[in-house]
Design a protein around this nucleic acid. Structure first.
Lengths: 148, 148
DNA sequence: CGATAATGATTTGTGTACTAATTATCGTAC
DNA sequence: GTACGATAATTAGTACACAAATCATTATCG
């Protein structure tokens, strides 16, 4: 009687594979992002800002699906290293307008080298990556819909 | 000129989808694990122990691909709630023998209800989940092989 | 107009997660 | 048998990540 029948077998847990894949892939980014002074979550925030700054904390939270409580200190660190600016919206003093500094803008050129470097290191072909992306999109949607 | 050509577009970053999928799915586990007094990483440790206790920190680290520095305090918490025992190996005082308490063993019955509940909540069919699992396994192997 | 509800961000508390440094123990070579 | 390199675990330090509580500001209702 092998563990073939064991519903709790570690290696058949999708959540386990998901957690490891996430950690491992983020680990690949580390040596590339570290010279830029960014962590992976910070890199994702910069991606969002390069696409459409300025953004409020709430908008960033929705885009990145991160808690405002997580973003708040993270944004302060990005401001401390000089990549972003944090100002209160003049129309509504409650919302924070997060925008890019010139250095933050400049960093984009460096960042463009990251995705191809990752793909090269992974050594997976585009088809496999697209299939993974499709599967991930499906499970994200499923988890969203399952919130009750 | 849409963002179709933008290599930094947020929603085409696999790492982004990976991070969100991981967080979202783990989030689904939270309400199920919390009544048992477990977090998701703690649940993974228990899965490993149910399969083959006793295990050393090093062995757990290798199985779960978690840093010993992460496991050390986590295991103390599991001991504090009474699910595991931490003893030094009598043969080699350096290694820690992590084993289950009777309560830890009993918890397995509860835990068996978790995976089907998750699958039900996700509402994805087995085929989709298996495809996801295959893709994740591939990317984990690729990231492993890319460490240099 | 003024009390109150709602909103956006921050703070607090607990628990990962990784790197690097430290400690304790073991094995080996001299 | 003692110094020494290797190994196993812990600790320290920084940075997420989320839930719950708090605070400031805005909107709304009587």
């Amino acid at each position: 009687m092998s563990d073939m029948a064991d519903p709790l077998s570690l290696d058949r847990q999708v959540c386990f594979a998901l957690a490891i894949a996430s950690r491992n892939v983020i680990g690949l980014y580390r040596p590339l992002l570290e010279p830029m002074g960014l962590t992976h979550p910070q890199y994702l925030v910069m991606l969002a800002l390069w696409e459409r700054a300025p953004l409020s904390v709430k908008e960033l939270s929705k885009l990145l699906r991160l808690d405002p409580g997580t973003l708040s200190p993270l944004l302060k660190r990005l401001e401390a290293v000089g990549y972003i600016r944090r100002r209160r919206d003049s129309q509504d003093q409650r919302v924070l307008a997060v925008s890019l500094t010139p250095e933050g803008h400049r960093l984009r050129d460096e960042a463009e080298k990251v995705p191809p470097a990752i793909v090269r290191r992974l050594g997976m072909n585009l088809e496999e990556l697209q299939e993974l992306h499709r599967s991930l999109t499906r499970v994200i949607a499923a988890a969203d819909g399952a919130h009750h």
